[in-house]
Write a protein that binds this DNA or RNA. Structure first.
Lengths: 211, 211, 211, 211
DNA sequence: TATGAATGAGTATTCATTCAT
DNA sequence: TATGAATGAATACTCATTCAT
């Protein structure tokens, strides 16, 4: 008749988690339409169909909620980049695919970029977040970059070289996204996508030339 | 009596302008110590020795004041980059010097970077700023990038190529500054300066290889 | 099966009571470290290892919980004062001991004083508490004052005189504790303890002079 | 025709001050009807016919507003006690009058007592107030007690004795007010006023006996 | 008996901006 | 040109309490 306690608890947990997810989803929606600064706890709560106070049952603070969103975003990013990496066997294309996956992800979700910069600002958040969360986010970021790093290793670069190349690619991509996001790309009559491809071609050429 | 009206007006204008500059200087000081989010009109007014209301005689809005600061910053940046460009006769070093001047400027004044991103966000400001000001800022930005573009032209690139190369250099530099500013460079055991040099070396090598 | 229902109920009762005591103890701890204003139901619940909602099974309201704590405190106070009274046979010292026991109790537990003032404020609590509880607390307070009253009776005062003397001693002691608690005693380069002794000496002298 | 600037400024000042006083008066009214805990900035602002934000133009914080009220209260108290002291030439009655003026003041304005205890709690306020204000309040308190102290001096007590006697009188009065304020006086079938008189008579008798 | 989830009312304070003077 | 005074909307967050489960 009745469900066993264990099952019930599981269901509650699922329900609880799904509520968290509901709130996070609502927060994402608000972010997307209002931007980071425009997204208030009140607004998020309203969008989620809750009282502001209710959110505090699920998240310790606004920043913690933000961090959760960023974490989910980074997770999705990492999945995307890894999938792109794995979808290719050609070593050169692997790099291209992985790096472009990174680029396309943020090109499609520009607000997530803001979020990342906001929470990473100064290397730590102003309010809470704390070191543990910073470390966690760093780890997640690295997981998204790891395929790119691996691609460079696979192309014959040693560990230090690969790391530097990954950093360069990350920076280049971030900058490119920034220019597009802030509408400055118009100055140059070109697109970030094009420039990304050219950057990657150059990297591959340079690597090929070395050997 | 003593002074003619015309002279008086001129003096007032001068005095007015110097007051503007005083306010802008105060705002810069506040930005540097408090950051973009921490800088309030009240705080700026206090630092300038004025009432908040007084600032509205000199600037239409907070954003307008910000824009003015950004304009000054871009002007200083342009001067710096141009001077670096002119200080060199060797074509390759010209590029290096100009690009690194850009990098060093923001590395030393990271808050100015924030300001730029903030005001350029979305291609237009939320409140005022308007198209004219956006255009003006774009022009100023281009003035800071022009020497880099010229260096590429001098290295034998055609106009389109130079523009794309300038865009790439701009993006790369911006991304690098971003990574450093947000403390993410630590992930890679290297520095933005080093990576900048390596990027520029690669660009020069690729150009040389082409011909 | 094994245990009879009656026994079970008793056990439950005992268990319930011990839980109550656990909560009260937790609340006391929170009071002592956070003060009256700083003590929230949430904090108390956490300290007790419960959910806030759980406390409502044991206490009708926050005020009711407070009242319980005050009741325990008054009980302890009464015990202390009675013991002090009984520990002496000399009539004059009996008064001194009893009154000083009162003083020392609150001097050591200043938060309990706050609690008393808070709950007694206006003669009744804002929310619940009600008349029964007020009467109960009054009774308990009187039990703590009874030894002092008895001491005055033993010193030959009639009932009315003793009551008035008790009231005076109570007021004097309370005021003294208040001055110390609020740091105002510093104005006078003396201590509450000293002044208490001098007050009691005077009372005894006045009584002696009368006869 | 027009008013001179100096006059205008004076008027403005007067107007500004009167607005402060208006707010303070409103705050007092709210205190009296709602009590200390029930008095919120919002409520005070509403009562004063202002927006909460407007109060911050006149007072730095809620605590600062409270402190101002307490300061005014203490000033009025001091005036009252001094006047009582001066109205008498008979040395014994001087003490009586001054001490009873103190008592009557708080008996008529019991909320002011709360305010004093609240702001003096722990010798310093939790939020702001700061040492300067604490010192100022202490000074004001002493000004209200000075006549009592003088009365003891006039009765032939040396400085130390007078100080201790003043402390004792202050404590006794405070305690008496407390008992009345919290409705505990009912336990003793007497009144604070009566007990105050009897306390003062005793003090005078003890002083007379000494010499 | 206890929890998880939620509420609604409340908190002090800050913000950019306006306007009469 | 500048101020003093004020606004209205917003902010994140806390509270005691309730209720279905």
């Amino acid at each position: 008749m009745a469900l066993s306690r264990a099952v019930k608890r599981k269901e509650n947990l699922a329900s609880s988690d799904s509520k968290r997810d509901l709130i996070i989803a609502a927060a994402r929606r608000v972010f997307e339409s209002e931007g980071l600064e425009g997204a208030s706890l009140r607004g998020i709560a309203k969008e989620a169909g809750y009282t502001p106070a209710a959110l505090y049952f699920h998240f310790d603070s606004k920043e913690a909620l933000y961090a959760e969103i960023l974490a989910e975003s980074l997770e999705a990013l990492a999945k995307r980049v890894n999938a792109a990496f794995r979808s290719e066997t050609d070593l050169e294309n692997r790099l291209r695919r992985a790096a472009m996956a990174f680029y396309y992800f943020y090109s499609a979700n520009p607000r997530d970029l803001d979020l990342g910069f906001y929470l990473f600002k100064g290397g730590m958040s102003p309010v809470g977040l704390g070191k543990e969360r910073d470390n966690k986010l760093n780890d997640q970021l690295w997981e998204a970059l790891a395929p790119i790093n691996q691609a460079f290793l696979d192309l014959g670069q040693d560990e230090d070289q690969a790391k530097a190349l990954t950093a360069g690619t990350f920076a280049h991509t971030s900058g490119m996204l920034l220019l597009e996001h802030t509408g400055r790309m118009r100055l140059f009559d070109t697109t970030g996508e094009l420039l990304m491809h050219s950057y990657l071609d150059n990297q591959l050429k340079l690597i090929a030339d070395k050997s």
